[in-house]
């Protein structure tokens, strides 16, 4: 395998003395799909916010493509794309306008942004609805626009925060296919989800995070082997065994 593209070292982040991210360290190799799994409130989104330079960690550092998020956040931003958990779109604008706008914000020229927007919409299967207003779209279509926006500017590393929440199997499958195609083109992806088969199918390696701490990290197969014969054990069994059945609220 290739050398790490992302190295997170001993990240800490607290909100009013509540630890959201606690001693988190991991690395992601180039071209890898890395899953970050954890119950609600585990610290997945906070971790992504730190990695994507939106939040500064209280302690620790992250190196992405050789650049530190602390010392060189601008260089880091040039390498990353973020597909946020919440739909972060201008609903009053059309799909293509959203893509072109965010494309211009990552520094593309008008014509580059236009061309990339058309290509990204094709990738997520929305060519026919390019000019439709986003607020008229179904949940699945919005999710796909959300993903397409994060691909503007050819990021080398993509953060995907629960990109398949609340959508039908058709849209979800389209998103899986998109991710697989991106991986085939060599993109590095950090992926968070609550759906264990999803992680099992897509991820090369997963980390399980609970209460801000990483409690296990390995390939899905190796994790399943830990608690029994891998063909009889699901990743969900592993997840529940490691994180417990207690409700997180």
């Amino acid at each position: 395998m290739l050398k790490p593209f992302l190295i997170a070292k001993n990240l800490h982040k607290s909100f009013n003395s509540r630890k959201a991210v606690d001693r988190v360290s991991f690395s992601i190799r180039k071209g890898e799909i890395f899953g970050l799994l954890g119950p609600n409130g585990a610290g997945k989104t906070t971790t992504i916010r730190i990695l994507s330079t939106v939040l500064e960690p209280d302690r620790g550092d992250v190196i992405i493509g050789g650049y530190s998020i602390r010392r060189n956040p601008d260089a880091v931003r040039r390498l990353i794309g973020v597909c946020p958990q919440e739909l972060a779109l201008y609903e009053e604008l059309s799909a293509i306008d959203n893509l072109v706008f965010f494309g211009r914000m990552v520094g593309l020229s008008g014509s580059e942004a236009k061309a990339q927007a058309v290509a990204r919409l094709k990738l997520v299967g929305l060519t026919g609805r390019a000019k439709g207003r986003v607020d008229k779209f179904s949940g699945g279509m919005k999710r796909r626009v959300n993903l397409a926006v994060s691909l503007m500017g050819h990021p080398k590393l993509l953060f995907m925060d629960e990109p398949t929440v609340g959508i039908d199997p058709q849209s979800r499958n389209r998103i899986y296919r998109t991710i697989e195609r991106l991986r085939d083109r060599g993109m590095t992806i950090l992926y968070t989800t609550h759906y264990m088969e999803e992680a099992n199918r897509l991820c090369d390696r997963v980390a399980i995070i609970d209460a801000g701490r990483i409690i296990a990290m390995d390939t899905p197969l190796a994790l399943r082997s830990r608690i029994g014969p891998p063909e009889q054990v699901t990743l969900e069994d592993v997840f529940l065994k490691l994180t417990g059945r207690r409700l997180r609220d």
Binding site: V54, E86, V149
Partner: peptide
């Protein structure tokens, strides 16, 4: 909605 946050991950 998160559009501002998203803008901060651009340039």
């Amino acid at each position: 909605r998160g559009t501002l946050e998203r803008l901060l991950t651009t340039r």
